[in-house]
Amino acid sequence: MNPTKPLPLNEGKVPGLVSKQKKRSNLLILLVILVLYIVSSLQTNSSLLRFDGEFFSNVWRMMSQMWPPQFAYAPMIWPKLMETIQMAVLSTVLAALFCIPLCLVSAQNIVRNKWIYNGMKGFLNILRTIPELILAVLFVGLFGIGVFSGILALFIFSLGILAKLMSETIEGIDNHQLEAMEATGGNRLQVIWYAVIPQILPQFASFSLYVFEINIRASVVLGFVGAGGIGLLIQQQINFLNYPAAMAVVMIIFFVVVIIDFISNKMREALL
């Protein structure tokens, strides 16, 4: 027997890192994604072939038309910008107030009745699935064009988010304190006031600020459907083909959002 020849254990093959089964399932997933991509890009007519010279020249033409931004238009912007911020503030405050009873009722460790808290959770989930702009379309139909519809839409949308986040926070608190309060004879309200509230107050403030950030971004676009705010100005200027003014509005929004996000982030870091 020739000693230099290796024993034919695996017919000379080295076993791979990934098993055959795993490879096959990975390939299958990749194929499914590819097929879905082809179908959806055909459906939306957005295959990679669309990124041709014409597309880039269109976008470039748009960019060059938008530049330089016409900041002379700024005095028209301030009142609407203030309105946008005020809408976001009011809807956040309303949502924060109304969220307190809702999140208590939908927390598993406060309300022990399975039907009530599961029902409330389902309700909040449904509330969150409707985008705020569609709520705004509905409310504009009901209450007419104006700030009120916008505030209501933002309020309902952010109520869903805030109540969900808060009920999850309440479910994560230290239950020993609740039990201790109950054992010493505290009633429901006392338990909530002295055992729950102190534990969730920082998170409550932090989440409210987070929802405020979301509301600022959302209130920017509510104007597209006539629910108040700065969105109306952008749409008007683009429809009038006054692109430099539209660019000025967009840039001012950009700076305001960045500043508000920065302040809110710093405050949230200090809170938690």
Binding site: V221, Q235, Y243
Partner: peptide, 15 residues
């Protein structure tokens, strides 16, 4: 920073 719909508005205007 930009909401998607604002980006969409700009793209609708350009293409």
């Amino acid at each position: 920073t930009f909401p998607e719909i604002l980006l969409a508005l700009i793209f609708v205007a350009s293409i």
